[in-house]
């Protein structure tokens, strides 16, 4: 018997309340993500890409369908149980870096480790290593507003990988960067992913970016093509 996929969506749908009833933004989506696989999710604006990513991360609850993690049904878990799963298994990269402004680059990268309960010195060492891997060792003590856009996003990438999650979810991670910077950041990102062997689901508008990943799924009007 073959091992279950890392993540499986079975007929997952999502409705949002809207004037006069509810609006279905994602229709019965079914797909699987295998360990170490990389996948691009593309589609026009408003097609439901970010909603799909939120559902995969357990940040949204499906209105219908089931979400399975290594064969285990996740839809019945409480918020805190989902948070506990996320902290160990998922790394998230947002379009706009989403660093905590009050913390330094190093402290931002340490956050997932500390939330997992890794002791301070160890967390510090691992976070410094993650930053160094992305060429940011010198910027460890800088606050987010003291970094360039590319550096901020690389800190966010380091934060996503530092606790070695099995799944990385990235929502247009280079969408807010200029062309050269975006290319450089993407290269570092994909190289790191290859090295870490995590499964990667990346939302993007850019066909060139999508082409660099293992496979592409397309969303149109809330439906998987």
């Amino acid at each position: 018997m073959s091992a279950p996929p890392l993540l499986e969506l079975r007929g997952v749908a999502k409705d949002y309340p809207a004037p006069g009833g509810s609006l279905r933004v994602l229709h019965e989506a079914s797909l699987t993500v295998a360990p170490g696989e990389s996948m691009a999710v593309t589609g026009p604006s408003g097609s439901g890409k970010s909603t799909l990513l939120g559902l995969m991360a357990g940040l949204e609850r499906p209105s219908a369908g089931t979400l399975l993690w290594r064969g285990r049904d996740m839809t019945a878990l409480s918020e805190d149980e989902l948070a506990a799963w996320r902290r160990v298994s998922v790394g998230f990269i947002f379009q706009n870096h989403r660093l905590v402004g009050a913390l330094s680059a190093l402290e931002n990268v340490m956050l997932p480790l500390e939330i997992c309960g890794v002791p301070g010195p160890q967390a510090r060492e691992r976070a410094l290593g993650a930053l160094a891997a992305l060429g940011l060792a010198e910027r460890a003590e800088h606050r987010p507003h003291q970094l360039s856009g590319g550096e901020q996003q690389r800190v966010a990438i380091a934060r996503a990988y530092v606790h070695a999650p099995a799944l990385i979810l990235a929502d247009e991670p280079t969408g807010a960067l200029d062309g050269d910077t975006a290319a450089a950041v993407l290269s570092s990102f994909l190289a790191l992913n290859a090295e870490k062997g995590a499964a990667l689901v990346l939302v993007t508008h850019n066909p060139e970016v999508a082409a660099r990943l293992g496979r592409t799924v397309r969303l149109a009007r809330g439906r998987l093509a």
Binding site: D80, A83, A84, R86, V88, I115
Partner: peptide, 8 residues
């Protein structure tokens, strides 16, 4: 913090 898995 919650996206990173922090409990309430």
């Amino acid at each position: 913090l919650r996206a990173l898995g922090a409990p309430t």
